[in-house]
């Protein structure tokens, strides 16, 4: 029993205890710093984008950036109207979402409310893989398969166009929309559905009038994720959309998006520190701000739909 007494008071005990404390503390601090890396990454992103953008905006007034209707940063007569790139981004995103949102939602409703269990278990991994295909491969498909196919229907369609890129991008985004929407619908309590069935509603009525409204914030957050994917997508557009800046809202035309422009500049060899180099950071900052807004909105919505039940 003297052993026990010594165990909690002796100097040897105190020394070993201190060693243990130091070791545990050290590990905790190391793990904490690892977790901090993600915050550092965000800070670094903001720092790099803002730093280069500040230099950019010293040379190009913000007013011109927002109102100029030409984007020719590499010409002698340089213009920096971000609207030109935004039009490409918005048009291609619109086409993509016009595919992804309806199809994604229908698939989500079908899988959550109609499909037999076995089918659902089989289809979900396939959809997941669809989201895992490298986007360069989708770009290849858009340029060399979908565009020629569309040209058969629309003979005047140029080889680079936003329509084909947007359509393929839409297919790529379907899994993002459908999986989060489905999760939201599955989270709706059975009791709500039973209440609806008890009143004689059909599956379809229950799905559209009870489940979808109840899961609305979750579905909305899926849409927002889809939007942020579409806006940030790069390779499909760089390959199939053409990289010439073009102020247009017509998906049948070629046009550069913000992302495709960055790729185009990066492919050339612009000297570090030139205005051309800085434009991609200003363009990147615009993109970052837009997706940040999307993410925050999605975060708020997700939180709300989690709280609902």
């Amino acid at each position: 029993m003297a052993k026990a007494t010594a165990a909690l008071h002796g100097t040897a005990y105190l020394a070993s205890r201190r060693a243990r404390h130091i070791r545990e503390r050290l590990i905790e601090v190391l793990l904490f710093f690892a977790a901090l890396i993600s915050v550092v990454t965000t800070v670094a992103i903001v720092y790099v984008l803002v730093k280069e953008s500040v230099v950019f905006f010293e040379q190009v007034p913000l007013r011109d950036f927002l109102t100029d209707r030409q984007w020719t940063p590499l010409f002698d007569d340089a213009h920096f109207g971000i609207v030109v790139l935004l039009s490409g981004t918005l048009t291609s995103s619109f086409v993509a979402l016009a595919v992804a949102i309806p199809l994604g939602t229908i698939i989500a409703i079908y899988l959550s409310e109609f499909a037999p269990y076995r089918l659902r278990e089989m289809v979900k991994p396939v959809l997941e893989m669809l989201g895992g295909v490298p986007t360069i491969v989708y770009g290849y498909f858009a340029l060399l398969f979908v565009t020629p196919l569309l040209q058969k229907v629309m003979p005047g369609l140029p080889g680079f166009n936003l329509l084909s890129a947007g359509l393929v991008m839409g297919i790529m985004i379907i899994p993002y929309v459908s999986s989060i929407s489905e999760d939201a619908m599955r989270a709706v309590p059975m009791a709500l559905r039973e209440g609806s069935y008890a009143m004689g509603a059909t599956r379809f009525q229950t799905a559209t009038r009870v489940v979808v409204p109840a899961a609305f914030s979750g579905i909305a957050s899926a849409y927002i994720l889809g939007i942020s994917r579409a806006v940030g997508e790069t390779m499909i557009l760089a390959v199939a959309g053409g990289m010439q800046p073009n102020l247009t809202f017509n998906p049948l035309e070629p046009a550069a998006t913000i992302t495709a422009y960055i790729v185009q500049v990066a492919l050339g060899d612009l000297p570090h520190g030139s205005v051309g180099y800085q434009t991609i950071f200003a363009a990147g900052l615009t993109l970052m701000l837009f997706t940040l807004a999307c993410n925050l909105a999605g975060h708020v919505l997700r939180k709300r739909f989690r709280e609902a039940y």
Binding site: V39, F281, T291, G298
Partner: peptide, 25 residues
């Protein structure tokens, strides 16, 4: 909280922005 929100947020940053980070940094 900051770390958690930040991770969710990072997951949504377009990959090309990481490219810009890497280029600058």
């Amino acid at each position: 909280d900051l770390i958690e929100i930040n991770i969710t947020n990072l997951a949504g940053v377009p990959s090309i922005v990481y490219g810009l980070l890497a280029l600058g940094l």
